[in-house]
């Protein structure tokens, strides 16, 4: 048959492309849901919260990150709505005073030192610049973690070192290795 060899070759190519682009991500990333079905949209729109109301800078300039249980329990000691998710949160975390083990989408390697203060206060960057439109999401995305490297998939999307360097170059900022790797 004419082009028999080429047909088998391209079938192989197609199979590899399908496995590589569709199958491989499903295999390499372990998926899990966040422990609490938290809605940024409800808190931002209904409760009127801003990012910095929960994700604060401490007095010494360090970033508080994801708020602890005490911050949430400040409002949610009793149910404020009628959702199942809130009731589950209060029963499983607020009442027994158990900290929530959030999976951090932006987890960086331990050798990376990143300070939010200069980026927020000096560069006046918006949270969405690096974290995307999390602030309006109605529920947390599925957390996907690389099974081999251990890092979240989100880091590969927009928080690699090359992404930081590109933005710094665009703004005319050059730094030494020690500024980010202590």
């Amino acid at each position: 048959m004419k082009y028999r060899g080429a047909i088998f070759f391209f079938v192989g190519v197609a199979a590899a492309l399908a496995l590589g682009w569709i199958g491989f991500p499903r295999v390499i990333y372990a998926r899990r849901v966040q422990p609490v079905n938290f809605s940024h949209k409800v808190h931002a729109e209904t409760a009127g919260s801003k990012c910095e109301d929960c994700h604060t800078l401490r007095a010494d300039g360090s970033f508080a990150g994801i708020p602890g249980l005490a911050q949430c329990a400040g409002c949610h000691t009793a149910p404020m709505g009628s959702t199942v998710a809130e009731k589950k949160f209060i029963d499983e975390y607020v009442t027994p005073k158990r900290e929530i083990a959030w999976a951090v989408y932006s987890q960086q390697p331990i050798n990376v030192y990143f300070s939010h203060a200069p980026h927020l206060k000096l560069a006046n960057l918006k949270c969405e610049k690096c974290h995307g439109d999390e602030g309006h999401a109605d529920g947390p995305r599925v957390y996907e973690q690389d099974r081999i490297g251990g890092y979240p998939r989100d880091v590969w999307r927009s928080m690699l070192m090359k992404d930081c360097i590109r933005c710094h170059h665009q703004n005319g900022l050059e730094h030494s290795c020690l500024d980010c790797h202590k």
Binding site: V13, G20, W21
Partner: peptide
């Protein structure tokens, strides 16, 4: 021979995937 050509295709295609 067909199997070998398919394998070559798989190898070539893999290079164009993130894997």
């Amino acid at each position: 021979r067909d199997l070998l050509k398919m394998t070559a295709g798989v190898a070539a295609g893999t290079l164009f995937t993130p894997a």
